[in-house]
Nucleic acid binder design. Structure first.
Length: 117
DNA sequence: AGGGTGACGGGCC
DNA sequence: GGGCCCGCCACCC
């Protein structure tokens, strides 16, 4: 939105958006996992940047991305954060004490969690 | 070219 | 568990 349209074609960001689209309904992932799954390990901030600058109109489950503690990373009382929580709960994701249990609802990919599955 | 900034994360107290 | 402190990638002056 606030940034230039040139960003919308940036290959790195495109990969992040594309990966985000694959997050299944009812699951959540973290910024770090999203970045890793997109091919950029240790670039969690990149994932946050990409989501923040998602091209208007692009259909993508941005609400399924939480921080590593299972919390919503948007400003606490903002309409955006409430919207995120509302959407997640509508998919059956449960919040306890403002947190989502990533072991229960976390999206598992082969690449970033070889220990599981 | 270099410094500041994020919807972040992991290591260390 | 909660702060701090860096490192991370890409963007912006």
């Amino acid at each position: 939105m606030t940034l230039s349209r040139k960003l919308w074609k940036h290959p790195t960001l495109v990969k992040v958006w594309k990966t985000a689209k694959a997050i299944p309904r009812g699951c959540v992932t973290t910024y770090g996992q999203l970045a890793t799954a997109a091919g950029f390990p240790r670039a969690a901030r990149l994932a946050g940047f990409a989501l923040k600058n998602t091209p208007p109109g692009m259909k993508l489950p941005w609400h399924r991305v939480l921080n590593a503690q299972g919390r919503i990373s948007l400003p606490p009382r903002s309409t955006a954060s409430r919207e995120q929580r509302r959407r997640l709960e509508a998919e059956g994701v449960v919040f306890l004490g403002g947190r989502v249990d990533l072991r229960r609802f976390g999206w598992r990919t082969r690449r970033d969690s070889p220990l599981l599955d």
